[in-house]
Design a protein around this nucleic acid. Structure first.
Lengths: 179, 179
DNA sequence: GGTGCTAACCTAACACCGTTAGGTCATTCT
DNA sequence: AGAATGACCTAACGGTGTTAGGTTAGCACC
């Protein structure tokens, strides 16, 4: 639970990031404005800049926390299961569905890697690489499939009657066939 | 070249949408503001509202045009090749790389289908369904993979040294193995 | 006990955003 | 001639991220 990504921040900055996370997830991406966030905290928008450089830094902190939690969830999923890829992709989908707005924030644009807590992106990616036995190629293909499935689902791009559980398992099966 | 999606618009609205497309692709998503668009046209932002209901309608027109062009490109790719799925996914990737900002606009949020030219979304999806011989399940899985690959590439999420051509062909191969 | 420092807040303003109300003017139709 | 239409305009509203500069409370130190 204790976040290494937040530990580099001052206590007040941590509070702000956590409030931002709740605001984002509860009220959607448009609610994540400096003014709305400040209102939630009972202060003015300009005061936030005492604690965080700018909105990009705030978003980077949120993304870092997201990666950190993914790393934890995904590595547990892999180690607890004897079908690691299925378990991992299930955890991946679960993460996205539980916090769709954070997931979108984490994936919808190029990453400002220089603003992230160092290592978190790699840590989130490691379990999948483990699950493929170190096969980068296969890990990338599975990641692409999983991200595609998840984001198209979140964005309601599949027909309402589509059986996505079946699509998932068929897709995962397909990636087992080829070395 | 003549667009059915634009044919329902007045001539002036068509010009505005086409200018918007150039602006979006040449200067990026932030440049697609009503004021910047108006400046490009030599008028004021408020004048745009004489021709298009609002920004959502403008975006919907752009998205409709995108779907229309996809439908054309994808059906050609399928019909001209004896490896239809490979040809189609290549065309899919090509479309996204040639106009990344339009592709993002088309995929990054839930669709306002009520604002689209009717039928364009389905028309863009048909060639893939053809290529899978009517197998919706497989079409969805391939679509998810293709979209995942494309958007992660556009957002520079793969390591710079990743050989994405290989990842693509391995992925496509995988989806041939399972019925 | 006053001095200086720091943290945390503030107001006011800037340039931008989408959007609306209401006005002007030339062209076209009757 | 008069009316209607289309295409533009200015001015404003409330929202955005951000900065400059000011206030206040608490604490360390001589």
């Amino acid at each position: 639970m204790a976040s290494h990504a937040l530990s580099r921040l001052t206590p007040r900055a941590r509070e702000i990031v956590q409030t931002a996370r709740q605001l984002l997830e509860r009220e959607g991406p448009d609610a994540l404005s400096m003014r709305r966030l400040a209102a939630q905290l009972g202060i003015r928008a300009s005061s936030i800049y005492e604690h965080l450089r700018d909105k990009q830094a705030l978003e980077a902190a949120l993304i870092s926390v997201g990666f950190e939690e993914q790393a934890e969830l995904f590595s547990q999923a892999v180690h607890r299961s004897d079908a690691p890829i299925a378990a991992l992709t299930a955890a991946y989908r679960d993460f996205a569905r539980r916090q769709p707005n954070l997931y979108r924030l984490m994936t919808e644009r190029p990453l400002r890697r220089d603003l992230l807590t160092s290592g978190v992106e790699e840590a989130a990616a490691m379990p999948l690489l483990d699950a493929t036995g170190g096969d980068h190629e296969r890990a990338r293909a599975i990641w692409a499939f999983a991200h595609g499935m998840v984001i198209l689902e979140l964005n309601q791009r599949f027909p309402p009657d589509a059986d996505l559980d079946t699509t998932w398992s068929k897709g995962i099966d397909a990636f087992h066939g080829t070395g």
